[in-house]
């Protein structure tokens, strides 16, 4: 189960809408030990693509260092699908290198039945989980 601050989840969805049709991406951090993801950190999609996203490695490094200094952790890795459903793609699964993170996907595709979903992804396995707004 992902517990996420409601205003932060709304901001993620709004970011995805603003960036559409380019895939958006970012991180939601949490204080170490806290059950609630509450700090939004939008990231630059280095690929600037409608079908792919990639964090800028140097921006990612700075954010990861800053989180460690603040005793926070990357709780959620989010990105958008702009012409498909909110479900992990083969590439999403291949590149899911953070088994401790929740993978949140926002679909801005008008035919998507559910615009936001969250998953745990590890060793190629995908498990959908409940998203709880706090």
């Amino acid at each position: 189960m992902l517990k996420i601050c409601s205003a932060v989840l709304d901001a993620v969805i709004e970011q995805a809408r603003q960036d559409h049709p380019i895939e958006t991406c970012g991180v939601v951090a949490a204080d170490a030990g806290s059950p609630i993801a509450n700090r939004l950190i939008p990231m630059r999609n280095q690929a600037a693509s409608e079908t792919f996203f990639c964090f800028d490695p140097r921006q990612q490094y700075k954010v990861w260092c800053e989180l460690e200094e603040c005793d926070q952790e990357c709780r959620v890795i989010y990105h958008s699908h702009t012409a498909s459903i909110a479900w992990p793609s083969r590439e999403d699964i291949e590149h899911a290198h953070y088994p401790d993170a929740h993978y949140l996907i926002v679909s801005t595709w008008e035919q998507a039945d559910c615009p936001v979903r969250s998953f745990r992804i590890a060793n190629g396995a995908v498990l959908e989980e409940q998203v709880v707004r706090i």
Partner: peptide, 25 residues
């Protein structure tokens, strides 16, 4: 530092996914 990346969903792959119509918000 492993990269964070991914791509769009390919509709044909939906055939291999069970339970994808659930929506838990």
């Amino acid at each position: 530092l492993p990269a964070v990346a991914g791509g769009a969903f390919v509709p044909s792959a939906m055939m291999h996914v069970s339970g994808w119509t659930q929506c838990w918000i």
